[in-house]
């Protein structure tokens, strides 16, 4: 990618030459990525390949050591901390690979937290949160605390929390990791459907089952194929902190070179 100053119009999020160390060890090395408005982008990679660090850099949670991150026309990498926090609070949603709910708050209060943080009145926040909990099949548990829920229910609450304020971009860092296999597809479908209906851009990471070396000639097991994300528009693969060529599900004019491999 040549020295481009502003992102193309339909890229909602755009990063170039990201370097970032994680606790002193290099995690990202020269990653460039462009996320288009309304798409569902999957970044696949093994554990430790830098998926979480990439998502945290893109969402402004971490400042890259080198490189640029742009959200629309806002340079996230130079934005003042307060402005960045406000932007992240209002425009971004986050689901982690563990629910990370506040243990002292009930399920609906947890789900309503992004709204409460931006100063929405308690009553309105509660109504919206309850709607989202209902949509994610945990409406019955709204008054319970996280400790009284199953891990999968907690994760559903966390997903409700990430969607409740209808963010522009939703970052989902292995959102189905704490779920059992039969629940994964359902939860992912709920998430992607919600994103499609509300025009939310999704950047989602998934564990790529590189797996163990298997004897020559044996086929890969059925459940170890590349991550089963039903609605994804594009796949990218992260290997040791570098993006490699990704594929795309939906054919589009710009899909052939959606992200650069520049260093």
């Amino acid at each position: 990618m040549s020295a481009k100053v502003a992102p193309p119009d339909n890229d909602v999020l755009w990063a170039r030459g990201l370097d970032r160390a994680h606790r002193g060890s290099p995690a990202l090395a020269g990653v460039s990525i462009a996320v288009r408005d309304g798409e569902i982008l999957v970044v696949a990679g093994a554990r430790g390949s830098g998926k979480t660090t990439l998502l945290r850099c893109l969402s402004g949670r971490l400042r890259p050591d080198a490189g640029e991150v742009w959200f629309n026309s806002l340079p996230l990498h130079v934005l003042a901390p307060r402005a960045r926090d406000r932007l992240r609070r209002d425009r971004f949603g986050w689901v982690g690979s563990t629910p990370e709910l506040v243990p002292e708050l009930t399920a609906w209060e947890n789900a309503a937290l992004p709204l409460l943080l931006s100063g929405v009145s308690g009553r309105a926040a509660r109504r919206t949160a309850l709607e989202w909990l209902e949509r994610l099949d945990v409406g019955d548990h709204a008054a319970k605390r996280p400790a009284a829920l199953l891990q999968s229910e907690r994760q559903r609450v966390a997903i409700a929390r990430s969607l409740v304020h209808q963010p522009t971009v939703l970052f989902a860092d292995e959102p189905t990791a704490p779920l059992h296999r039969h629940e994964r597809t359902a939860v992912l479908r709920t998430l992607t459907t919600a994103a499609r209906t509300h025009g939310i851009t999704v950047v989602l990471t998934a564990q790529e089952p590189l797996g163990l070396p298997r004897p020559a000639g044996t086929p890969a097991p059925a459940d170890r194929r590349s991550p089963e994300i039903p609605d994804a528009d594009r796949f990218l693969t992260l290997v040791d902190g570098r993006l490699t060529a990704g594929g795309s599900r939906s054919a589009g004019p710009r899909d052939t070179a959606p992200c650069s491999l520049s260093a």
Binding site: R89, G96, L101, L113
Partner: peptide
């Protein structure tokens, strides 16, 4: 610590 970290992920500021 984990909870505070989660809150920061939601965009809660350090000041809050």
């Amino acid at each position: 610590v984990a909870t505070s970290d989660g809150l920061r992920d939601l965009g809660a500021s350090v000041g809050l």
